[in-house]
Amino acid sequence: MKHIGEVITVRSDVLVAEGERSALPPLGTILKSDRGVLCLVVSHSIDNKIPGRMPIAYGKSIEQLEREQPQVFALMKWMFQAIPFGTLSEDSVELFLNKVVEIHTLLFETRKEERDLVFKELRFFDFLFSIDKSVFPQRDKIIVSLVNAYLNDLLEVKEDEYIRIFSYISKILRNDYQTLKYIMDGVGI
C-alpha cells in the first residue's frame, strides 16, 4: 500500500508530515502509521525546499505555471499536520498514545473497518473537542466532515448512529449549544 505522507517533525501534540502535491489527505482524514498509531489530519501547509527562496509567480496562474515552469513545483514541500490520538490493534482502538512516533514514520490511509472501530469509541469525540480551536480554527468543520464521511459509509442504522454520536457530543457541548447545533446541522442523514 502506498503511503500518504512521511513524518518529518514530531512534537508532543502534533506531527508534521510531507506528502505529495496531488495527494495531500483532506482535513479530517484519519491516518495510521505502520505501527498502528492513529492520527487526524488537521491542517495543510506548503513551504520551500530551499531555505530563503521566495516563490513569486509574477501574476501567472497555477495552470500557466504548470504548463510553462513545472520545475518550480518540484522546489516546494507539500506538508500536512496530524494530531495523534490512539493506537490501532486488530479489533479495537486504544485512545491513548502508548507508542512513540518516530521521525520518517510513514502514514497510510485507514480502511473503513478501522475507522468504524474509531467511531465505536465515543471517547474519540472527547479527543476531537479537546483540539484547540484557536490553534486549529477548522476544528468544527473537520468534525463535520469526519462524521459525515463515517455516516455516509454506513449502509444502514444511520439515524441510530447519528443519535448515538450526538447524544454523546451533546454531553460534551452541553455548555456550547451553538457549536453543537452547527455540527448537528452540518451532518446530514
Partner: peptide, 19 residues
C-alpha cells in the same frame, strides 16, 4: 437552545438527556 431549537426529531432525541 431556545434561540435555535433542534430542527427535527433526530436532533431533538440527540440533545435529550444532556441539554
Amino acid at each position: 437552545i431556545f434561540f435555535n431549537p433542534p430542527e427535527n426529531k433526530v436532533q431533538k432525541i440527540a440533545v435529550k438527556g444532556a441539554i
